[in-house]
C-alpha cells in the first residue's frame, strides 16, 4: 500500500532530532509538525519571520498579524522570536537551520530539484525555496513518486525549470525512502506491501538496490 500524505509526514518525523531547528515547506511538509515525538525539543522556523511556531489557533483566537509562510493563521510556543525577512533568510543562508523539508515536482538522480514553475501553465514563483535549497545543510523532499499520469517524478534529469542543483539529500515518497548519492537514488526502505520491483518500475532515474530492503516502520 502506498503511503498517505499523513504517513509520509509521519515517516519524515523520524528524521527529527532533539534540538533541531527545522523549516517545513507548504503541503505535506507542514504535516510533519503533527508527528514531532513527545518530549523532543524541535524549533520550527517560518521564513516570514518566526522561530517557535506553534499549532493552528482555536476558533476565535486567530490573529491576522500572526501567520506562517503558507499564509495560514498560527500560534507561537514559549521561547519564540520574531524577526524580519532578511534575518530569516540570513539564518537560512548561514546554515543555522538543521533540516529543511519541502515538496517537489521533480528530483533528479544528482539531487537537482524542480518545484516552482511549469512553463506556460503555472507561474506562482519560487518564494523562499531557492534560498532554502541553496543553503540548507540537510534537505528532505516529501513527494509522490509518480505524477497523476503515472509518470515517474524521480528522473535522470529534471525537465522543469530548476529550483536548485545537487542539493536534495533524501526523499520520502509514497512508496519509498531513498538517499540521493553521487551514484544515484539509493533505496533504503519501501512502503509496507510495496515490492522492490514496483519501486524499480516507478523510478526513471538510476536506482541502487543493495541487499534486502526493509519495510518502513512508523
Amino acid at each position: 500500500m502506498a503511503l498517505t500524505k499523513e504517513q509520509i509526514a509521519q515517516r519524515i518525523a523520524k528524521e527529527l532530532r532533539d534540538g533541531y531547528y527545522v523549516n517545513l515547506g507548504i503541503g505535506i511538509p507542514t504535516l510533519v509538525a503533527n508527528y514531532i515525538p513527545d518530549g523532543m525539543n524541535v524549533v520550527l522556523q517560518s521564513e516570514n519571520g518566526l522561530l517557535g511556531m506553534g499549532p493552528f489557533p482555536y476558533e476565535g483566537e486567530e490573529d491576522p498579524d500572526l501567520i506562517n509562510a503558507g499564509k495560514q493563521t498560527i500560534t507561537t510556543v514559549p521561547g519564540s522570536a520574531f524577526f524580519d525577512s532578511a534575518m530569516s533568510f540570513g539564518m537560512i543562508r548561514a546554515g543555522k537551520v538543521d533540516l529543511t523539508v519541502l515538496g517537489a515536482m521533480e528530483v533528479s538522480e544528482e539531487g537537482d530539484i524542480a518545484n516552482w514553475k511549469i512553463p506556460g501553465k503555472m507561474v506562482k514563483g519560487m518564494g523562499g525555496a531557492m534560498d532554502l535549497v541553496a543553503s540548507a545543510k540537510n534537505i528532505i523532499v516529501a513527494m509522490m513518486h509518480s505524477n497523476p499520469k503515472g509518470e515517474s517524478k524521480l528522473l535522470p534529469k529534471c525537465t522543469l525549470p530548476l529550483t536548485g542543483v545537487k542539493c536534495v539529500k533524501k526523499i520520502v515518497s509514497d512508496i519509498a525512502v531513498l538517499d540521493v548519492t553521487p551514484e544515484g537514488f539509493k533505496l533504503l526502505e519501501r512502503a509496507p506491501g510495496v515490492s522492490v520491483d514496483e519501486i524499480r518500475l516507478k523510478t526513471a532515474g538510476k536506482l541502487i538496490i543493495e541487499g534486502e530492503i526493509p519495510e518502513m516502520t512508523f
Binding site: 521564513e47 524580519d84 533568510f89 540570513g90 537560512i92 507561474v123 525555496a129 534560498d131
Partner: peptide, 19 residues
C-alpha cells in the same frame, strides 16, 4: 495579465528580495 503579456513580472528568490 501575466500570461497575456499585459504585465511584466520578475520573479526572484524571497531571500534575495529581502537582502
Amino acid at each position: 495579465q501575466l500570461l497575456s503579456g499585459e504585465l511584466e513580472v520578475e520573479l526572484i528568490p524571497q531571500g534575495t528580495l529581502a537582502t
